[in-house]
Design a protein around this nucleic acid. Structure first.
Lengths: 199, 199
DNA sequence: GAAGTTCTTGACTGCTCGGTCCACCATAAG
DNA sequence: CTTATGGTGGACCGAGCAGTCAAGAACTTC
């Protein structure tokens, strides 16, 4: 009965997400968003509301995707302990470092807006709680598989792993070379996931 | 022969630093800077140049102070291992969490401007190299004191500790409660600084 | 093909921003 | 007291910003 949208919502959200990711919230202008999305101002406003709402949509889309990929990676790993190791080492894998050089969008957004925007802070809090739960499940599985000592609290270890991972991704942002970064990731993995009793 | 300055440069830098710390670079307007410093526009420009230069001055002042305090803390500790533990646990000590809730100015700035401003990125890189060296010295001292196994590379361990600390401070920004945060810090400290052979 | 509805485009509007400039003022030297 | 010097504060400017709006285009339905 009416003209259909000429763009794909998810595609626009991805483009917008990349722009915010590269430049941050404040440093991204509506002109940037129009350029990367290929849409006019009016279309953006009609479809997503104002800049902040568009940002929040892109951010939620990002965290949903991230958790989806995390869930997948943890589930598909033949052995849970390997998945936990990957958690620390995988972000660094890219030899150019381009992947982690821009960090994690959720972390960047928390840094830039956490003090000013309660909604962003709240989203960050819930996102990391979910991540902790996912990792905690994987720790528990590794314990059942005999790869981690049973005495450890899965959630506590998950929090330590998550903090270590965030620290690593951040160090990558400072321009640390990938070789050093990889070594640090391995070193942290070895210390946080010590005994592989089975094998 | 002329009118002397009516303000203390260090005091202004501290006020400006706090403002950038709370709000970030982009979200801080010159009006904010005038308000917190008590100076007029002309005075700020005459004394420090434009907004970006003022920011860089405040940032350098911050990292200098931080390294000074770190150096002091590491040197004054009766035992080097205690200083390393403090490195992870001290940032969380404040029961209100207000201290770490705003994170580390250097880390925030790297997140916000690292992609866009090479000078900030370069400063971040050198700052963290210095931190690594300071912590590495302390690790070596702990080894000499017999509190850490001699086989470990001090710089490698220093990097792992620094990454863990940055991760903890970041987790604090997401609104994680201090009790959980403290537990995570202790857990990381226990795993990264394992054996206290002496004592 | 006609009608109705939604999408699209880009000109337009205040507004706030960083930065400049100049008139004024406080001070120190002679 | 006079004069020269440099600090001070606010008026001012152009640019760039987020957000609005109305006219026209595209599509579906009847």
């Amino acid at each position: 009965m009416a003209r259909p949208r000429s763009f794909d919502e998810k595609q626009v959200l991805n483009a917008v997400r990349d722009q915010f990711w590269d430049a941050g919230y404040a440093a991204t202008s509506l002109e940037d968003l129009m350029r990367v999305s290929g849409l006019g101002k009016g279309s953006l406003y009609a479809a997503f509301g104002d800049k902040r709402q568009l940002f929040l949509r892109a951010l939620r889309s990002y965290t949903d995707d991230s958790h989806g990929r995390l869930r997948e990676a943890l589930a598909e790993a033949p052995r849970a302990l390997d998945a936990l190791r990957m958690l620390l080492e995988a972000p660094i894998d890219d030899p150019t470092g381009a992947g982690t050089r821009r960090g994690c969008l959720m972390a960047n957004s928390t840094c830039e807006l956490g003090n000013a925007d309660p909604e962003v802070l709240d989203h960050a809090h819930r996102t990391y709680e979910t991540s902790t739960a996912l990792i905690g499940d994987c720790v528990a599985r590794a314990q059942r598989e005999g790869d981690l000592p049973a005495g450890v609290d899965p959630i506590a270890l998950a929090r330590a792993l998550l903090a270590a991972q965030q620290g690593l991704v951040f160090m990558s942002r400072t321009g640390l070379d990938t070789a050093t970064l990889t070594a640090t990731a391995r070193s942290l993995a070895a210390r946080l996931l010590p005994d592989r009793s089975g094998d």
